[in-house]
Every structure is written in structure tokens, then in C-alpha cells.
């Protein structure tokens, strides 16, 4: 497997677009949370010196806040994944890699690992950002473990992996970068609208299990935590394992579709 990754590394290490998109992926996560932190501190009214939104950037809520903020940046790693995937089809190097001696399984396997590694890198940056913001932005309350609430970091990984896997799948099936990115964005928008209309307006059940929505639910917005009732919090807590299980099932489905498409079809 290391040999395969070494070849993938050779493909990207001299590719400027890869480094630009990777730099943006890394930089935008702390930038986004720093912007939100400043906005909250400077633009929202305070009561007795405290923000009416509570302390979303203090431990333990900082894990949830930074994770949620970072999900807004999903488009950058998605574009990176689509670019790397469609490049192979544009240059027909997916064929050449097989001709030169990779199996189809090795090709698709190393691409899936690449998707996982980029999602993991993004998650590590989120974790470091949350630690940084939590330590330097606020005083850690006495007796509180900084790791309380850390579970949102693995939730973020699942959510980011879902986004990047959808991006990878679209790149693999559509084979053209521009079209794949457009469809990816359109899908995200359409699903949001569908959920809004059918769940919000018609009160239809099951909308929360759509691919994007179910991962969204892993990390609820933390800025309005003060407004969330105990009942709603308990409901989210009880549904969490189902959301996670459904998200993982979707990931497995994405892998199966990608594998089947590449293993069975003409290249």
C-alpha cells in the first residue's frame, strides 16, 4: 500500500493546483473560526460582560463550534478531490496506470485512501484550531477536562468524509471537473431546499436521513445552544447513533458504487 501511496505522492507533489487548494483547505478552517470568534465578540450584545450567545468558543463547546464552522468550508476539499480524480480521466492516465501494472482494485483503493487522508488532514486542522481557540480565546474552567466534547471531532471527520466521498464519486462517474463541481454544488443546494420544504413546510418524516442532512445532524449549530430545550437536546442525543449508522451506511454505499463502476466498466 505504501508503494501505491508513493506513486500518488509523485503525481501531486509537483502539481501547483494541489498545493494551492490544500493550502486553502488548511488555512480556511482557522480563518473561518477566527472570523466567527471576532464577529461574536464584537457584534453581539453582552449582558453582565457575557455574550448572549453564551461561550461557544470556550471549552467544552469550542469543539462543536469550530467543527460546525469548518463544515461550511467543505467545498474546497471537495474541489480538490474532484480535480485530482478528473485529472486522471482528462489525461487518460487511469488507463495508463492499469496498463503499466496496477490492478483496477489498487487504483480505486489508493484513490479512496487519498480521499480519507484529505478528510483526515482537514479533521486534524479542525482539532488543532479548536484547541488553539479554546486555550487562547478563553480561560479553561477549573475542573473541566479540555477533551470533554471532543466527540465532535470524529463527527466532523465522518461529515467531511461524506462530502469528499460524494465529490469523489461524482468525479469518477462524470469524469469532467467543471460538470462534477457544478452537480456537487447543485446537489447540496437541492437537498437543503428539499429538506426545508418537505420537513419544514410539510412536516414530512425521514428527510433527516438524506445523505447531506444526516451528516449535518451530527454537528448541530452551537451558537443557539442557549435556545435549545433539554427535550430537544435529549432527542438529538438519542438519535445520534442512528445518524452515525446511516452516515456510515452511505459511506459504504459510495465505496461500493465507486468500486463497482471502476472494476466492471470499460476504462
Amino acid at each position: 500500500m505504501l508503494k501505491l501511496l508513493r506513486v500518488e505522492w509523485m503525481k501531486v507533489k509537483n502539481y501547483r493546483t494541489f498545493w494551492v487548494l490544500l493550502a486553502i483547505t488548511i488555512a480556511i478552517i482557522p480563518a473561518c473560526s477566527y472570523g466567527a470568534y471576532n464577529l461574536m465578540n464584537n457584534s453581539f450584545p453582552k449582558v453582565n460582560g457575557k455574550s448572549i450567545l453564551g461561550s461557544p468558543f470556550a471549552f467544552p463547546d469550542v469543539w462543536q463550534t469550530v467543527s460546525w464552522n469548518s463544515t461550511l468550508t467543505f467545498i474546497i476539499p471537495a474541489i480538490l478531490i474532484i480535480t485530482l480524480t478528473t485529472n486522471e480521466f482528462t489525461y487518460k492516465t487511469h488507463r495508463q496506470n492499469i496498463i503499466d501494472g496496477w490492478s483496477r482494485g489498487q487504483f480505486i483503493g489508493v484513490k479512496l485512501i487519498e480521499v480519507g487522508l484529505i478528510s483526515l488532514l482537514s479533521t486534524v486542522v479542525v482539532m488543532l484550531t479548536a484547541l488553539g481557540v479554546g486555550y487562547f480565546g478563553n480561560k479553561v474552567p477549573d475542573g473541566l477536562s479540555v477533551w470533554e466534547g471532543f466527540r465532535f471531532i470524529p463527527f466532523y471527520f465522518v461529515q467531511m468524509l461524506s462530502f469528499t466521498m460524494i465529490a469523489f464519486l461524482l468525479g469518477l462517474l462524470i469524469k469532467r471537473a467543471g460538470l462534477a463541481i457544478s452537480i456537487f454544488l447543485m446537489y447540496m443546494l437541492v437537498e437543503d431546499i428539499v429538506v426545508l420544504v418537505f420537513r419544514g413546510h410539510y412536516k414530512m418524516n425521514g428527510m433527516e436521513y438524506l445523505p447531506e442532512e444526516v451528516t449535518d445532524r451530527l454537528i448541530p449549530q452551537s451558537y443557539v445552544k442557549a435556545l435549545v430545550t433539554t427535550q430537544e437536546a435529549a432527542r438529538w442525543e438519542s438519535h445520534l447513533p442512528i445518524y452515525l449508522a446511516v452516515a456510515v451506511i452511505y459511506l459504504i454505499i459510495y465505496c461500493l458504487i465507486a468500486g463497482r463502476s471502476f472494476l466492471k466498466n470499460d476504462l
Binding site: K11, R16, Y91, T93, D100
Partner: peptide, 12 residues
Amino acid sequence: TLLETPNFYHYL
């Protein structure tokens, strides 16, 4: 094997 057209990474 050289099949059909030369397939290489254009940016390398």
C-alpha cells in the same frame, strides 16, 4: 505497452 495515445500527466 503503448496503447492508442501517450497518456501522461500534462503538468509533470
